[in-house]
Simulated scan of single mutants.
Amino acid sequence: MFGFIVNPVAGNGRGLLVWNRPQKELERRRAIFRVKMTAKQGEAKKMAVELLQKEEVSKIIAVGGDGTVNEVISGMKMAGIPCTFGHIPAGSGNDFARGHSLPSDPVAVLEHILAEGEGKAIDLFRVNGQIAVNAVGAGFDGEVAKVTNEAAYKSWLNRWRLGKLSYIISVIRVFLSYQTCRVTLRVDGQETILDSVWLVAVANIPNYGGGMLICPGAVPDDGMAEVCVVCNVSRWSLISAFPMIFTGSHVHHPGVRFFRGQQIVIESERELKVHVDGEVSESTPITVEVEHRKQMICA
């Protein structure tokens, strides 16, 4: 039996619309399934626990955005019962879907989920005790995530299916006032002192922020996190180079450095906002640890 956790307000109401088509297809096939609808942030985590402990489902499918993905997988890990995860994207960014090459059509994704296959095991991050599925960002992008999530224009742009623009607008807003600082980065015990740091991104998939290729070399099942640091770049040089992140060509920029490791410790001379899969819930210092191939997904 499959369990579906639907965030109806994901993508400013797209969640419910997206779910309608797979639901009709499941009913047409007379499939046995359970559905839980979230009403507020944090509920998907509890629902995942309930589906595993009380309903004994074999797969849990999140219908929503990357925040819903994070909550559902976090709940699955909390329950401690092995279960395969599936995802029908309905958010504004949909980085998990993009990072794992899932179809964009909800019925096509459902076919993919219903197919009897072994799927694949992916890595997860443990961030100060929290689960991260896609990426963690400290500094500039943590501040951008905070501004984006609080912005009125996010819901308006989502309504017109222009969710990616909300992130870009927030980047410009934060850029005008953001102050860099010194960061101490330890990767598997090796320490690097970095001056004038704009951001530190720790990624499990290449993309974040609705498709930006922040860590083009990130692989979700290799047991390693890829770390991108932007530092020692002037304000105007940064904004002129910003479009490079959409193609991944920023890897050649002199102000961008990359690291890879299993344990990442980020400390800073002042407290920096940290986003975990797009939600601001931490601040520096943080420790990111890779949990190798800890979650089975439909793929």
Rank of each mutant, 00 (worst) to 15 (best):
V288P: 00
P8E: 02
V187C: 11
G42L: 04
A121G: 09
N207P: 02
M37S: 07
D221K: 03
G91Y: 06
V202R: 01
K36R: 11
P206E: 00
G42K: 08
G223Y: 05
T247Y: 03
G65S: 09
G13P: 07
S166C: 06
G65P: 09
C231G: 06
V227W: 02
V144E: 06
F33Q: 05
G117A: 08
K45M: 13
G137S: 15
V171Y: 02
G129S: 12
V202M: 02
P22Y: 01
I172R: 11
P89W: 01
R30I: 05
R270W: 13
V133M: 00
A121L: 14
N70P: 13
H252Y: 10
A203W: 03
L17H: 14
G119F: 03
F140G: 01
A135G: 02
R14V: 02
I245T: 00
G80C: 06
E71N: 07
Y208C: 13
Y208G: 09
H253S: 01
Q53M: 12
K40A: 13
V227G: 00
A152P: 08
S196I: 08
Q130M: 14
T68K: 08
P243C: 05
A152E: 15
L194V: 13
T38S: 05
I169F: 15
R30P: 03
H292F: 11
V49G: 05
H250S: 04
R34I: 07
P89K: 07
M212G: 00
V136T: 15
T68G: 06
T284A: 04
W198G: 05
T68I: 06
V107T: 14
L272Y: 14
H112S: 10
V127T: 12
G209K: 09
A121C: 14
G210W: 05
M244A: 10
K54M: 09
G211N: 07
V9W: 01
D123K: 05
S58Y: 06
W198P: 06
V200Q: 01
P285L: 00
G117D: 13
I266W: 00
P89G: 12
P8M: 03
Q53G: 03
F2G: 07
A225V: 00
W198E: 04
A90I: 08
G99E: 09
Y153L: 10
Y208I: 12
L51S: 06
G117M: 01
K36M: 13
N7A: 00
E116H: 15
M212R: 05
K294A: 13
F140W: 14
A44V: 14
T184N: 10
L157Q: 09
P106N: 03
S166V: 00
N204P: 11
V280K: 03
F258I: 02
E143N: 10
A48P: 11
L194N: 08
C181I: 10
A132C: 09
A135W: 05
R14H: 14
E279C: 10
G217D: 13
I297R: 08
E25Q: 14
A218G: 08
I239M: 01
I205M: 01
V251N: 02
T287P: 04
Q262L: 02
I264K: 00
Q262D: 03
F2D: 11
V256N: 02
V183K: 04
G75A: 08
C181E: 14
F242K: 12
L176D: 04
L51N: 01
E25W: 04
H292P: 10
S155C: 12
E55T: 09
